[in-house]
Design a protein around this nucleic acid. Sequence first.
DNA 1: CATGTCGGTTCTCTCAAGGTAACTATAGGC
DNA 2: GCCTATAGTTACCTTGAGAGAACCGACATG
Lengths: 137, 137
Amino acid sequence: MTPDDLNTDAASALDPAPSSTGHRNCPVRDVLDRLGDKWSTLILVTLSQSPQRFNALARAVPDISRRMLTETLRHLERDGLIWREVTPSTPPSVRYGLTPLGASLMSPLTELIAWAERHQPEIVAARARFNGRMANS
Amino acid sequence: MTPDDLNTDAASALDPAPSSTGHRNCPVRDVLDRLGDKWSTLILVTLSQSPQRFNALARAVPDISRRMLTETLRHLERDGLIWREVTPSTPPSVRYGLTPLGASLMSPLTELIAWAERHQPEIVAARARFNGRMANS
DNA sequence: CATGTCGGTTCTCTCAAGGTAACTATAGGC
DNA sequence: GCCTATAGTTACCTTGAGAGAACCGACATG
């Protein structure tokens, strides 16, 4: 369980820093950094229902800006979690969907999501207790 | 699977923003924000082995500053994932360990970690392919 | 007398994540 | 002539996470 030192120096020339979170490039950190960002999980869950077009995603994930949608999709595509299919019509059409790798991530991810939904009341209660303890101390 | 709007206004008075990631306070985001930060997962995994004292943790999690260690521990404690036990001796002794809630998180978390370790080669390969495609385009 | 250990707190600084707005080009509808 | 939709790109700005160092008080050790 101790994180291994893996030195993947296949750093992207286009995107400054995929391995920038410190010198120890642990695969877990690699994945959690992606899942921990603001939009990746929402996009993955949305795409797990069915492939979607760019603007459909923008509508399905409210409040995301096109800039962040593009960026997040590129990251997920680079990591092989989603595919991107361009139909060069006018206006152009682009579809996104989960790759087998991305689909395989959904299983542990949905379990984590289920845990979060099951235990959120306990977390809220714990926060209330903690705030109470802090207040009267 | 669509994230619910839950309005937990039990905002901490001491710590500005636990629910600051946008207006839609989804429990999943709540958990992933924590897991996605730089140190929480490492600390949880370390504590899942056995309870640890502050400086033992600092040694077990290399490169973490005392400042971030304190902050991360407080966050985890506030969310009810770890407990904190102070022995007011001189010098004082403080132990940290997983609560039942924190222990219950380890199950989905270790699955996610296992996924990351199993599939990291594919991710690395996907990144290499992606960078290749970008290079000759 | 100086140094180290315990578990932190406080301060300042930087860098990257993310938000917002404007712009691209082509085509169709009103 | 103007607005919409397609899928982005570019430039600019704000904010917050995290780094790093100094400092705390009581005690022990050399």
